[in-house]
Design a protein around this nucleic acid. Structure first.
Length: 577
RNA sequence: CGGGGCGUAGCGUAGUGGCUAGCGCGCCUGCUUUGGGAGCAGGAGAUCGGGAGUUCGAAUCUCCCCGCCCCGACCA
């Protein structure tokens, strides 16, 4: 039983000046966490209990799914990370340090290497697979910009698991098992979330999905179709394009277009010159980029920007993309800034990438590769060739869902889980092989799965707070019932103690506000701020032999006889989900 | 890393060259109060982020450094 008379807790009346997002503000005000450095937080008793509750739900669901818990140190020697190249690849985000002998160590940002080596050390037969291991552990990443309190810290608690299979089909099964376990976990945490397709990024591998908890302060943007439920990370969204037929389009026509360096000015001229009807989406924008020092051209409709994140995610094998600078243009005299068209790309030796909207047979207005000249009736496949199609254009609210063509919405969310099929990258690098049925050595294929446990504290808070404070789901809250004793008569406190003890005897965790001499207003405000789901007020109503039972989230109040209070609460709790 | 803002007691803040750095919350003591962050009285608590400089005099002006927050870049 938590006793407020002795609990190590001081709530704050004012919002801390350095906290902006609601979860951060309220977790600090209500005495769950305190900041130590940028992105580094201490946990006070209420915070520790809440974090443990979430951790235990995660652990329970992992165990039920048949995954086995192990534990690695956060402090790791660099060896394994050198073999996979991540000692360097991870860059400045890696916390590196040296021991007294000068040997290099790191604080683990994620543990693929260690899991792979652990399995390699113990297993060597296909008969031992499939296998799935997990840990709940503190991770360290020296983020360039920690933010939003506990949502993006430099030290955080993560559950990470890894599956090991002989075959690709086995990996898919392991992946689906994890997916199912995650669904159960997040449902139990009472989180609202969407499972969205993701691009697997720098880690390599194929299929990948993110669990995103929608909320205004989230830092991830994703696309959602409210009709069919399609959800995708912006990087993974695909474009649907109707077939085009250009057989009726007139021949390419070059026209004078002085002073039209931008799409807007070009559209203005088109409408003046050719009697209206033109808009930005009918023009073709040629964006010149450097992809790992190779010049490329990316074609997108004029009313859209190139989304560099999308482009990079969808261009396999390219590490760095940057926009053309003056010095780059200088190297290609054939490229006239503002008047570039794809018609002469071959001549200039430039590879042409295009958004799927630039499908064969579509007709465009674009630059004529001559000063103050544009061209119309420029047909894809007829007047220029696209070397490769790539998802490159920015996504807009209202774009067509790739499944059902309903306009999609764009929403923000916090990433709370990520699952993906890693493949053989790490097993290959570290030599994790087993003998198959034929006695032949086979590289194991892996999956990698993460849940941000400390981040979940913030994500749940973000989804359930209101103007007066936090409001936790029953299973997550630091206690299920908050018993508040108001008044100065001993009988009030005795009754509160009795109810609390009876609840605990029924397995219902309680926080009791047994502070003497604290005014009722203070106790009510604290209870509302702390956010325990059921508040029992022992006070005024006691004259009629009653207590007042309040539901934090809905504000519902009922008066119940002291004798039946415990039964009432026991019946109430399961309905609060 | 680029842009912006900020740093005064545990928290929130006032103080733009001049006396002992002010106020609210919180904390301590006493009395009163007890259903919505109580009242009165008394009290403790501050190297004004750090260093150097200008000045008779610096929280206040100058320079350097450190830290924090926000936007962006970045982020298995």
């Amino acid at each position: 039983m938590l006793r407020m008379s002795t609990l190590f807790l001081r709530t704050l009346r004012d919002d801390p000046a350095d906290a902006e997002v609601p979860s951060h503000r309220l977790l600090v005000r209500a005495g769950y966490i305190r900041r130590i450095a940028a992105g580094v937080y201490s946990w006070l008793p209420l915070g520790v209990i809440t974090l443990r509750n979430i951790e235990n739900i995660v652990r329970d669901e992992m165990d039920k799914a048949g995954f086995q818990e192990v534990h690695f140190p956060a402090l790791l020697p660099k060896d394994a990370y050198e073999v996979t190249g991540r000692w360097n690849d991870y860059g400045p985000d890696l916390f590196r340090l040296q021991d007294r002998k000068g040997a290099d160590y790191l604080l683990g940002p994620t543990h693929e290497e260690m899991f792979t080596l652990m399995v390699k050390g113990e297993y060597s037969s296909y008969k031992d697979l499939p296998l799935a291991l997990y840990q709940i552990q503190t991770k360290y990443r020296d983020e360039a910009r920690p933010r939003s309190g506990i949502i993006r810290g430099r030290e955080f608690v993560m559950k990470d698991s890894y599956s090991f299979d002989l075959t690709d089909e086995g990996l898919v099964e392991s992946y689906m098992r994890h997916r199912a376990a995650y669904i159960k976990t997040f449902d139990r945490l009472r989180m609202k979330y969407n499972i969205v397709s993701a691009v697997s990024g720098a880690m390599g591998g194929s299929a990948s999905e993110e669990f995103l908890a929608p909320c205004e302060t989230g830092e991830d943007t994703y696309v959602l179709c409210e009709k069919c439920g399609y959800a995708a990370n912006v990087e993974a969204m695909t474009t649907v394009v109707a077939a085009s037929d250009a057989s009726g389009v007139a021949a390419l026509e070059v026209f004078d277009s002085p002073n039209t360096p931008t799409i807007d000015t070009l559209v203005g001229l088109l409408n003046a010159k050719f009697g209206g009807g033109y808009d930005g989406s009918m023009t073709l924008k040629n964006v010149m980029l450097m992809a790992d020092k190779t010049p490329i051209s990316v074609l997108v409709p004029g009313d859209r920007e190139v989304d560099l994140k999308r482009l990079q995610a969808n261009l396999a094998g390219v590490n760095d993309i940057s926009v053309f600078e003056e010095a780059d243009f200088a190297k290609f005299p054939g490229l006239l800034k503002g008047y570039i068209g794809p018609q002469d790309a071959k001549k200039n030796g430039i590879t042409v990438y295009a958004d799927p909207r630039i499908a064969p047979g579509t007709s465009w207005v674009t630059g004529a590769n001559a000063k103050d000249k544009h061209a119309r009736n420029v047909v894809s496949g007829r007047d220029f060739t696209v070397d490769q199609y790539v998802e490159a254009a920015q996504i807009k609210q209202g774009d067509a869902c790739p499944k059902c063509e309903t306009p999609v919405i764009i929403d923000r969310a916090i990433e709370i889980g990520h699952i993906f099929q890693l493949g053989r990258k790490y097993a290959d690098a570290l030599g994790l092989t087993v003998l198959d049925q034929n006695g032949k050595s086979q590289v194991v294929t892996m999956g990698s799965y993460g849940i941000g446990v400390s981040r979940a504290v913030a994500a749940i808070a973000e989804q359930s707070y209101d103007e007066i404070g936090l409001s936790w789901p029953v299973e997550v809250a630091p206690a299920k019932v908050h018993v508040v004793a108001t008044g100065k008569e001993d009988v009030v406190f005795e009754t509160a103690e009795k109810i609390s003890a009876d609840l605990e005897a029924r397995g219902i965790s309680v926080m009791i506000d047994d502070r003497r001499g604290t005014s009722p207003g203070v106790k009510f405000k604290d209870a509302e701020l702390i956010g325990i789901p059921v508040i029992v007020v022992v006070g005024k109503a006691l004259e009629q032999g009653n207590v007042e039972i309040r539901v934090r989230k809905s504000g519902d109040k009922s008066e119940v006889a002291v004798a039946s209070a415990v039964d009432f609460i026991a019946g109430l709790l399961p309905t609060l989900s």
